[in-house]
Design a protein around this nucleic acid. Structure first.
Lengths: 226, 226
DNA sequence: CCCTATGGTGAACGCCGTGTAGTAAATCAA
DNA sequence: TTGATTTACTACACGGCGTTCACCATAGGG
């Protein structure tokens, strides 16, 4: 890597770091090229040699932030013995909620709507992180398979995306198609309460959302027969 | 109501209608005072005699939109016999998802982050609609009480907001505090998958999210012993 | 040592929300 | 009917935004 490339990467990292700082302080909308440039002693136009557009920068940030969330969840899961499938689910779930509470703006960035009509490009790092999250939850489900107490319909592999199916069958050969459906349901169940809480819809209803969430996750784990 | 007041209300309604149209076309960020005024053949400044600020307008819209969602859910629920508690839950859940699919931008407006750092004022119509939604789900839970197969911790009335508790004890005198916790859990469970779907996080994973969601709701209903 | 590719500037364009001063018309009081 | 006042609205200005473009200084490689 030449000196030029090094400097370039450094500047690019600084842009992202400042963007993340601005976001943490003022939400996703506070990520403005002019504010970033101001903080760097540059002109807004200069950023365009690093990111084609503001949305491009945000797309990159989503990838970084999403990856940090997934890594937090994976680390929490891996801190629990593989033999304790239920404990690993709880660890993942708690890590997600705690990460979200610590990085509410990041959560909004990932699961909210950073840009009107924004659609992440197929090959963005955000998509990769999403796939990784999905794979993580699939692993949690697979470790509990066969599940005991969940209402399950029959599914077909064709009900799901081919790439996802290929990856799943390779990594979790014993998991039937219904396992993928259950993965999404588990994901939804972990996501729902956290999203409501982060976006303030539980504000002033329950004083301790953590307890409600823990109960919900205990019920989820119990329903898997763990 | 005088002629003045009638004209005033009419103009105000037109502003809101155009704002909703703009939102449906381009997402919440497309609600700009200038665009509304342009469409009405007015100046942007004129809107300030109807709404103190753009956020004020959005706050009002949230109330309208949220109310329309709650009314759709209530209507669907009421179309099912009171004796069929499980059917009423399913009807509510399906109505919420279908409304969200038909009004994705509305869903984003209610449950997303329309404005950076936006906090709805305590007395906004959006709060009222939220309370109404919460009450609706509480009713669904109360109709199934006592629940059979859910992991429930003991709760205290003091774990919840006093106003919510007062309303609940009056309307559903047989529901213990844990019922309120379960209400939030049910809400979260209905919300999670829909939010993931609306925000595109299931895109390209499951070909038919409706089936996954229906299964999840069936499981929820079964877990309540219905 | 020169040439060029590169990272940067600064001004411009057209959006945006938001104030303020002024105007014309509608309403009300006499 | 006439005069006073309230009200709806316009015109303009300010600062902020993303984005583009012509231009410049300089660091790197031959």
């Amino acid at each position: 890597m030449s000196r030029r490339e090094r400097l370039r990467a450094q500047t690019s990292d600084e842009i992202k770091a400042i963007a993340l700082k601005l976001m943490a302080e003022g939400g996703p909308d506070a990520i403005s090229l002019r504010a970033i440039a101001r903080e760097m002693g540059m002109t807004a136009g200069a950023i365009y040699s690093y990111f084609a557009t503001r949305d491009d920068l945000v797309t990159t940030l989503i990838g970084d932030v999403y990856t940090s969330l997934v890594e937090a969840a994976e680390a929490a899961r891996d801190a629990v013995s593989e033999s304790d499938a239920g404990g690993r689910i709880m660890a993942w779930a708690q890590a997600v909620r705690e990460w979200a509470l610590a990085n509410p703006e990041g959560f909004r960035l990932i699961y909210g709507d950073p840009v009107p009509g924004y659609q992440a490009p197929e090959d963005s790092p955000g998509i990769a992180a999403g796939v990784r999250a999905c794979a993580g939850i699939t692993g949690l489900v697979a470790a509990a398979w066969p599940v005991a107490g969940v209402v399950l319909r029959d599914y077909d592999w064709r009900d799901f995306d081919a790439g996802l199916v290929a990856h799943t069958r390779e990594e979790f050969p014993d998991l039937p198609p219904a396992g993928l459906a259950l993965t999404m349901r588990v994901w939804g169940r972990m996501h729902g309460l956290v999203a409501l809480e982060i976006y303030g819809h539980l504000r002033g209803l329950a004083h301790d959302p953590a307890t409600v969430y823990r109960d919900e996750m205990r019920d989820l784990i119990a329903s898997l027969g763990l």
